[in-house]
Design a protein around this nucleic acid. Structure first.
Length: 644
DNA sequence: CTGGGGTCCT
DNA sequence: AGGACCC
C-alpha cells in the first residue's frame, strides 16, 4: 500500500522495483522488487545487496498513507451504507455485509431476468430501481469473481456434494464491485477475501495477492461439509496465519510441544518442531486439547484460539470510529543519534511534540473537506473548530540498543492530563509545543529517565525510541474555555497552565518574554510573531483586528543573520506553513476522477529528484518546523529552536 | 541498520 | 502502566 501511494504521488515509480524505507528497515517493497528477491521487513543493507536496482522511497512520514487510508475507509463506508466497517491498520478493512446481501437476495425473488445481468442495489431505500451510482450490475452466471475455495466448486458443484452459499456468492460480487470502486475513485488496487468470519476472510484474502480476490464458498450451516473444507484449508498452514496466534502464543505452544510431547512420541510432525518448522494448525488441533490451550494461554484467550483452529470465529466486525482513540508519533534512534544528554532529550521531545501538534491540527480540526478527508481550511473559511479533544498525553521512552533486549522490552511510559491551552490555535504551534515541554512532558521524561530506563553514561541517556501520544479523545470540549490568544488581559510572568488564566500564559510568555518580541502595534499585535503564523491563521487574526494585510510589511528580512540574531534566521523559512513541507502537500494533489490520473508536481524520479535538489541548492528542511533553510543558516535556525 | 503506527486486555 | 495482538 505504501508503494501504491508513492506511485500515485510519483507515477514514474510504476512498474519499477520500489522499496519503502523507514530508518534502516525496508518497511515494504513493490511486487517487482519482491520478484527480484527482496523481502518485506528485511534490513536495508540486505535489500540493496539483493537488488541493487531497488529504488528507495522514505516512508518514515506516514502522512501520505494516512490520507489514502482515510479516503479508502470513507469511500467503502459510504458505499456500504450502514454495514459495519472495521479498520485494521492502515490498509485493511473488514466489512460485515450480511444485511446488504440478505436484502439483495430477498429482492431477487421479484426480479425478472435482465439483459445486463443482476442488479445489486447499494441504496438504503428503493432497492429495486437500477441506478448506476447506487448499485452495480453483475453476471450471476460467473459464480464468483476471482479465486474460489474449494477449487473445484465451479466445475463440479453438481456432483462433489459441495454447494456454494448464495450469500457468499453475492458477497463476492459485492467485494469485486467495492474493489473496482476503490480503484476507479482513488487509484489503489486491492485484494479481498470473502468468507463467513473475519479470520477466514483475512486468511483467504492473503492467498492470491496482488489485485485478486478469493472466496471461501462454504457455509457453516452445512456443518460436515464446512468442517471438512475448512480443515483441508487450515490444517497445513502455519498457525501464525490465524489472527491471534502471535509470537508469544506460538512460543508458548512450541515450548510445550518440544518440552512435553517430544519425549513421548516419534511423530514426524513433532520432530519438525525441533527444527524450527512452523507449527501447523492441523498439528495443534490433533495433538493438543482445548483444556491445554486454556491452561497455557488463559481461559478466555485459550478458548478463542482453540476455536480458531477449526475456523470458528464469532468476532463481530466492530465499526471503526471516525476518529482514532489515540494519536501518537514516534522516532527511533540508533547508537549514534540515541546518546543524548538531558537537553538533547528535551530537544527531541520538542521536535516530536511539534509534529504531533501539527498532526492534531490536520486530523482533529475541522477545515474544508475533500471526500470526507479533513484538510486544512482555506483562509476564507470559518474559524477552525476542534472535532475531538484529547485529554491525556503520554510519553514513552525505550532505552538501550543492546542486542539482548527483547522486542518491546525496556519501554516505560508516563501520562498526565493534557493542558487545555494546547487547543488554542491562535497561539503558534511552536509556542504550544514548548509549553507542553515545560508542562508536563519534561516532568514525565524526568520520571522515566530518573528511574533508570537509560543506561547512564556520563550524564548521557541511551535512548532508542521516543513516543508521544494523546489519548482519551473526547467529543465535548474541556471544561475550561479556550480564550483567544490575543486577549485584552495583560498578565505578565509565569502562570500555571491549570488555572483559568493559564491559556493566557502561553500568549503572554510570547508577547512579553520572547526574544523575538518586536515593538507591538497599537492594537497589541506582535508582528514578529505574526509573520510566523501559518497564512490561514494569520488571515484570521488580521481579519479579527480589521487590518488589511496589504498595509503590513510581512516580507521576510534578508536571510543573512548571524547566530546571535538567530531569531530572524528562523524566519527565513515558512516554518509553520504545512504546504511547504513535502509530506503535507497531499491536499494539493488533484484528481482526474474520469481516468484516475493523479495530477501532482511529480518529477521523473522521486528519489533522485529530492537528493539532487538538496545537493544543487544546498537547501534542507528543518525537522522541527518544516522550514526550508539554506544549509549555512541551519545552525542558527536550530539555535533558535533550542533557545527558550 | 529492527518502522511507525494502532487496538484491546490485564 | 504494561503487554499482547494487528498492519
Amino acid at each position: 500500500m505504501y508503494v501504491a501511494c508513492e506511485r500515485l504521488r510519483n507515477p514514474s515509480l510504476i512498474g519499477k522495483p520500489v522499496g519503502v524505507q523507514q530508518k534502516g528497515l525496508l518497511a515494504t517493497a513493490s511486487y517487482e522488487a519482491r520478484a527480484l528477491g527482496v523481502d518485506k521487513l528485511c534490513s536495508l543493507r540486505e535489500a540493496k545487496q539483493r537488488c541493487p536496482s531497488l529504488i528507495l522511497v522514505n516512508g518514515e512520514d506516514l502522512t501520505l498513507y494516512r490520507y489514502y487510508s482515510r479516503r479508502v475507509f470513507n469511500l467503502v463506508r459510504s458505499a456500504l451504507g450502514t454495514s459495519p466497517v472495521e479498520k485494521l491498520g492502515m490498509d485493511e478493512l473488514f466489512c460485515d455485509v450480511t444485511d446488504m446481501v440478505t436484502e439483495h437476495l430477498a429482492e431477487l425473488k421479484d426480479t425478472s431476468p435482465h439483459p445486463r445481468g443482476r442488479w445489486f442495489s447499494l441504496a438504503e431505500v428503493d432497492r429495486t430501481t437500477p441506478s448506476d451510482n447506487k448499485g452495480f450490475w453483475y453476471d450471476p452466471s460467473s459464480v464468483c469473481p476471482g479465486y474460489i475455495i474449494p477449487e473445484d466448486i465451479a466445475t463440479a458443484a453438481a456432483d462433489n456434494g459441495v454447494t456454494p452459499s448464495t450469500e457468499i456468492i453475492a458477497a463476492s460480487h459485492l467485494a469485486n464491485h467495492i474493489r473496482h470502486l476503490v480503484l476507479s475513485q482513488i487509484g489503489l488496487g486491492s485484494s479481498a477475501g470473502i468468507a463467513y468470519n473475519k479470520t477466514l476472510a483475512k486468511l483467504v484474502g492473503n492467498l492470491h495477492k496482488p489485485h485478486q480476490q478469493t472466496t471461501l464458498t462454504v457455509h457453516p450451516g452445512a456443518t460436515d461439509e464446512y468442517i471438512s473444507v475448512v480443515r483441508e484449508l487450515l490444517d497445513p498452514l502455519d498457525a501464525r496465519k490465524l489472527m491471534g496466534f502471535g509470537s508469544k502464543v506460538l512460543h508458548t505452544l512450541r515450548d510445550h510441544v518440544t518440552g512435553s510431547v517430544r519425549p513421548f512420541t516419534t511423530d514426524l510432525a513433532v520432530e519438525d518442531r525441533r527444527s524450527d518448522t512452523p507449527l501447523t494448525v492441523g498439528f495443534l488441533r490433533q495433538h493438543l486439547t482445548k483444556q491445554l490451550f486454556c491452561t497455557l494461554l488463559g481461559m478466555q484467550n485459550g478458548q478463542k484460539l482453540w476455536d480458531l483452529l477449526d475456523g470458528k470465529d464469532e468476532e463481530p466486525v466492530k465499526p471503526s470510529p471516525e476518529f482514532p482513540l489515540t494519536i501518537s508519533i514516534e522516532d527511533s534512534f540508533d547508537e549514534r543519534r540515541g546518546i543524548l544528554d538531558w537537553s538533547g532529550v528535551l530537544r527531541e521531545i520538542e521536535i516530536l511534540t511539534n509534529s504531533l501538534l501539527r498532526r492534531l491540527e490536520i486530523e482533529l480540526v475541522d477545515g474544508g473537506e475533500i471526500e470526507g478527508v479533513r484538510t486544512d481550511p482555506s483562509p476564507s473559511q470559518p474559524p477552525r473548530k476542534w472535532q475531538r479533544y484529547p485529554s491525556q498525553i503520554r510519553l514513552t521512552i525505550r532505552g538501550g540498543h543492546s542486542r539482548e533486549i527483547a522486542y518491546n522490552a525496556n519501554r516505560e511510559s508516563r501520562s498526565a492530563a493534557l493542558p487545555v491551552p494546547v487547543f488554542d490555535l491562535d497561539v503558534p504551534r511552536i509556542e504550544r509545543s514548548q509549553a507542553l515541554i515545560r508542562q508536563p512532558l519534561s516532568a514525565l521524561a524526568k520520571q522515566i529517565l530518573d528511574k533508570g530506563v537509560e543506561s547512564k553514561i556520563t550524564e548521557k541517556y541511551e535512548i532508542s525510541i521516543i513516543n508521544i501520544a494523546v489519548t482519551h479523545l473526547q467529543i465535548t470540549p474541556p471544561e475550561k474555555a479556550i480564550n483567544a490568544y490575543f486577549s485584552s488581559e495583560t498578565i505578565i510572568g509565569e502562570s500555571s497552565m491549570n488555572t483559568s488564566h493559564e491559556r493566557s500564559a502561553i500568549g503572554v510568555a510570547h508577547i512579553n518574554g520572547s526574544k523575538r518580541a518586536r515593538p507591538s502595534h497599537a492594537s497589541g499585535l506582535d508582528f514578529g510573531m505574526l509573520r510566523e503564523l501559518p497564512p490561514d491563521i494569520r488571515e484570521d487574526v488580521l481579519r479579527e483586528y480589521g487590518i488589511d494585510a496589504s498595509e503590513l510589511d510581512l516580507e521576510e528580512p534578508p536571510n543573512k543573520q548571524s547566530k546571535s540574531n538567530s531569531v530572524s534566521a528562523a524566519n527565513t523559512g515558512p516554518e509553520d506553513i504545512p504546504a511547504d513541507s513535502p509530506s503535507e502537500r497531499i491536499p494539493e494533489i488533484t484528481w482526474n476522477l474520469q481516468n484516475r490520473t493523479p495530477v501532482s508536481p511529480s518529477t521523473s524520479d522521486a528519489e533522485t529528484s529530492s537528493s539532487t535538489e538538496e545537493i544543487e541548492t544546498g537547501v534542507t528542511e528543518c525537522e522541527l518546523c518544516g522550514a526550508v533553510i539554506f544549509g549555512w543558516s541551519m545552525d542558527a535556525h536550530k539555535a533558535y529552536h533550542a533557545g527558550s
